[in-house]
Amino acid sequence: MSELKPRKDLLDIESLSLEEIEYVLENAFPFKQLFQRSVKKVPTLRGKTVLNLFYEPSTRTSSSFEVAASRLSADVTNFTISASSVVKGESLLDTIETLQAMRSDYIVVRHQSAGVPGIVAKHTGASVVNAGDGYHAHPTQALLDSMTFREVYPEYQGRKIVIVGDILHSRVARSTSTLFNKLGVEVGVLGPGSLVPAGRHDFMQRFSSWDDVFDWGPDAIYLLRVQMERQEGQFFPSIAEYHRMYGMNSERVARMRQLGAYLMHPGPVNRGVEITDEAMGYEKSLISTQVENGIAVRMAVLHWLKPEIHAD
């Protein structure tokens, strides 16, 4: 593989070249093979430090980064900032100043406001990995999703995936659909009109019913998590109605099975909302694979990025 231009930060999917995407995905596979061994560690980042800076609670993503970093032999610090301490007055720039003093090599950032990882990246020499910002982007999720898809479909180009649920508020939908589109996978969306903004992504085909989705014949169905706390009543009438209209149930699983389609979900799953208990047992569910691949992809990303820190 030819040498890539070194990259400091991973902030979104848009700015990635196909070569960079290939580089990360190809490196993720050997890292994954490592997980089968009794010793799962490599010394790649020995002596380096990774700081997990999470302004939003997220057990899964922060653990995934933590495991990825420790399997690369890096030291990991978790810096969880609750909303209340932000209210106390420390501004974002003050926090970045503090982080600078800690001299981390990598900073993994999650923030409720879009664009914050970019601000952190601008003010620090550390490599910044966006672990989710507002509705904007979640690039490592997109990379692990495409890794998972390519594992089951080595000939992935021209295949079809449909994303179901809240597109409007989903950074996962934005990043994952953009990456699939870059890779030549066709992307469709299904969801209530109030959560699928019209005319936003011209490359995505919009469906309004499961019948249309199944007629299209997707190779994978990607369910998004319903953010229940903020949406009931405002964007759809009730959880029960959402489940009836857009949820994955036994009948829809049967149709998936006919198509041979795989099931994906970024987790955590709301059982009984976007998916029923029975559907969770579907034999072609890739949900656990996604979690495992998440660690491998994040190892590949940390391995790939090059901090710009110079010893004084």
Partner: peptide, 11 residues
């Protein structure tokens, strides 16, 4: 609100 708000992920 429009393609730019969607792309940037801002309300």
């Amino acid at each position: 609100e429009g393609p730019v708000s969607y792309r940037l992920g801002l309300p």
